[in-house]
């Protein structure tokens, strides 16, 4: 069982991480580099005479020319992040199977979508993904809120899917709502220096890529789990 858990987690994580990295390179990394142009003052959007600046993201090649190992780091840490996510998924598979639920590729896909909701969508609901340069509340406060939100949402989704009583479903509703009623750490002022168009595209892309990568991760994890 231990071997099955760790090997299916590892291989699903590598596949999910590779897919996530390809999507990030295509759709997100150029936007991060564009955000950095506003962070370091190369471009200025909000001035005394109004708000206007040139649009256009640096290419992947030009980013690499400036920092040759940057994309390698992104790829490597996508493997690390998605292997971590995969380990949580397969630990969940093992617990579900011990309780008599069968896991296959289709079921894995549902788990993956739930993972996306817990790890990307729920935190973003109150603490949207941040472009570089965004001024935000103290880091540790946000990290703590992020972890609490992910755990509460994952527990809630587990209760919705496998809890077999109205009371447990009610507890799930409380858990999924609580982080947003408590509220994420935010300052009581806006500091944004990047164009709203760029920030909103970045957030939408971050969530979209998360959804796609987690779907592949869940599908792979479920398929590998069922095969062995």
């Amino acid at each position: 069982m231990t071997g099955k858990i760790l090997s299916s987690g590892l291989f699903a994580g590598l596949a999910g991480g590779l897919f996530a990295a390809l999507l990030q390179f295509t759709f997100i990394v150029p936007l991060i580099a564009e955000g950095e142009l506003y962070e370091d003052g190369t471009r200025v959007h909000f001035t005394e005479i109004g708000a206007q600046s040139d649009a256009g993201a640096p290419s992947l090649v030009s980013i690499m020319t400036e920092d040759p190992t940057r994309h390698l780091g992104t790829l490597a840490f996508d493997f690390v992040s998605f292997t971590a996510f995969a380990m949580f998924l397969v630990a969940g598979f093992a617990i579900a199977e011990k309780r008599g639920h069968r896991i296959d590729a289709g079921r894995g896909l549902l788990w993956g979508i739930a993972g996306f909701v817990a790890v990307h969508l729920a935190p973003a609901f109150s603490l949207p993904p941040e472009l570089p340069g965004m001024i935000a509340a103290p880091l540790q406060d946000r990290q703590l809120w992020w972890v609490g939100t992910v755990l509460a949402t994952a527990a809630a989704l587990g209760l919705f899917a496998y809890g077999r009583s109205a009371l447990l479903a009610g507890l799930g509703i409380v858990l999924i709502a609580a982080p947003h009623i408590v509220g994420a750490p935010h300052y009581d002022q806006y500091f944004g220096q990047t164009p709203p168009e760029l920030s909103s595209l970045f957030v939408a892309r971050s969530l979209g890529v998360g959804a796609m990568a987690w779907s592949v991760l869940g599908l792979m994890a479920g398929a590998l789990w069922a095969r062995r």
């Binding site: 990030q24 997100i28 990394v29 991060i32 780091g73 996508d78 790890v119 998360g210």
Partner: peptide, 11 residues
């Protein structure tokens, strides 16, 4: 870059 892309709180 992957921290920003995934939406981990960063900086």
């Amino acid at each position: 870059d992957q921290r920003h892309a995934i939406g981990f709180p960063c900086h």
